[in-house]
Design a protein around this nucleic acid. Structure first.
Length: 505
DNA sequence: TCTGGGGTCCTACCACTT
DNA sequence: TCTGAAGTGGTAGGACCC
């Protein structure tokens, strides 16, 4: 534990929803829900206005719609969030070389390593300056926690939300932690929380009082020891700038359960190919292939096979995943399929052992399978960060004119019209697309409807949320990424749906 | 009312090797 | 030669996080 609050945790407030509100002036101050729009979608982020209706992350979208029927429901636009995230991470990098991103909207910073904090006062000043810089550069707000450890800095930023800063002074940790619910501590989720509650422990103080032996008895050696230490306020995990990926996986939940065996097999093969594209884009190969199946009743099982050597060959992964599927009973239907690769190495050389093994199993089919993965590798990546592949539409038609309106013009996505300028899709269907013409710096705009094949209307890249400052101005500057994917897949991001649903407030 | 997607880490069990 | 303990790798499942 450090003697000065030199760990900073930044958490952007309702990030996805706030970015959409900044991009779409007509949505400011209104309830906005971002997430999968299909029948099985869940909420990724709800704006604070939507939270007042009881909508929160991970809630089924159908439930959110019942609670807040007049909210705006939008598909995630990861290219926008990633661009804003890059601006924020750049600002964090100015504070210290030791920045640990946790996701697009969250990061730890070791202020000591950057010389940005010697004591509480200078740490607080750094935090406030950061919040102001983020506001100027992105137009969004973030909450900052400052403490002597990662755990406490995170708890502090949670307490600071929204749009605040909380500093936990060294020496006050136990006093502050004691009355908090056990769920506050990282690693205590619903299951562990309930387990502890049944044992009579509801607060952090209860954990500290119970003692290490009791927690180990309840939760096992690793978890019990870690939790006891955290309950006492001890957490010496360092801020780690770079982490190696340990696995790459893709999965799809289907709008309706799949029953037909040949269709299930086909989907597994598609997933295997997508997975390999991601694997190759990350510069890895891996030894263990994992198949994931979630059945109609939500029971989930995994099957895995470890090869003799690492591979990044689409044919090998496809055949292995297919073989694993053969051992799974899918009667009753499957709602989700996934394919992953673990045991990653940087080694990307052709793996003859694994290929030979796959061909042995696959016979003639395997020979044909090996080549197309290599061709597809050239379209992989495109700057897509972990968690959200840009090639999600694999196997689904592209964005051509033959598509239904809602696929071609996903709700919430940016467009440009030759006459009316920049806008975003408010909704589409039955051959029409409705566009609201407004942009980040503008006043709330008007709505117009066009034919979906209107030649003057085209998809466009997200605009910066804040206009760049004039050259030579004092304001902190940050570059908006220049190269963005020209046309995004309708499926980009969470969920598999591309529905036309979008209720405008 | 049903419950995403991409990850990490831990535990338990089994088979195999030393 | 047989046997048991310990270590290791593979497999499966589960909890948790954002």
């Amino acid at each position: 534990m450090r003697t000065a609050p030199t760990i900073l945790h930044l958490d952007m407030d309702a990030f996805f929803a706030a970015a959409e509100q900044a991009a779409k002036p007509s949505l400011r101050g209104k309830p906005v829900v971002v997430g999968g729009l299909g029948p099985r979608g869940v909420v990724a982020t709800a704006s604070y206005e939507a939270r007042r209706f009881g909508v929160h992350s991970a809630m089924p979208m159908a439930q959110a719609r019942r609670l807040a029927p007049n909210a705006a429901y939008l598909m995630p636009r990861f290219s926008l969030y990633r661009a804003v995230s890059e601006q924020v991470m750049e600002l964090l990098g100015r504070l210290s070389p030791l920045v640990e991103p946790l996701s697009l909207d969250e990061a730890f910073v070791d202020l000591e390593a950057g010389g940005a904090a010697d004591d509480a006062a200078s740490a607080r000043a750094s935090g406030e300056r950061l919040r102001e810089d983020i506001r100027v550069v992105t137009g969004l707000t973030g909450s900052v926690g400052l403490a002597g450890s990662k755990m406490l800095a995170k708890i502090a930023s949670e307490q600071a939300k929204p749009d605040g800063l909380v500093l936990i002074a060294p020496g006050t940790e136990r006093e502050l932690l004691g009355p908090l619910p056990v769920r506050t501590l990282p690693g205590v989720g619903p299951t562990t929380g309930e387990h502890l509650r049944r044992a009579g422990m509801t607060t952090v103080a209860d954990l500290a009082e119970a003692g290490e032996d009791e927690l180990v008895r309840l939760l096992g050696r690793s978890h019990g020891t870690a939790l006891f230490r955290m309950a006492l306020g001890y957490d010496d995990r360092p801020v780690v700038a770079e982490r190696d990926a340990k696995s790459v996986s893709v999965e799809d939940t289907f709008d309706v359960d799949l029953h037909e065996r040949t269709r299930i097999r086909l989907e597994v093969e598609r997933l295997a190919e997508r997975c390999v594209r991601r694997l190759r884009a990350s510069g890895h190969s891996g030894r263990t292939i994992v198949l994931k199946v979630r059945r109609y009743d939500f029971s989930t099982l995994t099957r895995s096979e470890t090869l003799r050597g690492p591979t990044d060959d689409a044919g090998v992964v496809r055949e292995t995943a297919g073989r694993l599927l053969e051992a799974v009973d899918t009667t009753g239907g499957v709602r989700l399929l996934g394919v992953g690769v673990t045991g990653l190495t940087d080694y990307t050389q052709e793996d003859l052992f694994a290929q030979a093994a796959a061909e042995e199993h696959a016979g003639a089919a395997g020979a044909e399978a090996g080549s197309d993965g290599h061709q597809e590798a050239s379209v992989a990546g495109l700057g897509e960060a972990q968690g959200h592949d840009g090639d999600h539409a694999a196997g689904i038609p592209g964005t051509g004119p033959g598509l239904p309106a809602e696929r071609r013009w996903p709700a919430g996505h940016d467009v440009r019209h030759a006459v009316y300028g920049a806008g975003w899709v408010q909704g589409s269907g039955v051959g029409r697309v409705t566009v609201r013409f407004e942009e980040p710096g503008s006043r709330p705009g008007r709505v117009r409807t066009f034919r979906i094949d209107d030649p003057e209307l085209e998809p466009s890249d997200p605009l910066p949320l804040v206009a760049p400052p004039a050259p030579g101005s004092e304001a902190p500057q940050s570059s908006w990424p220049r190269t963005r994917p020209k046309v995004r897949s309708p499926e980009e991001g969470a969920g598999v749906s591309g529905g036309p649903e979008m209720s405008s407030p």
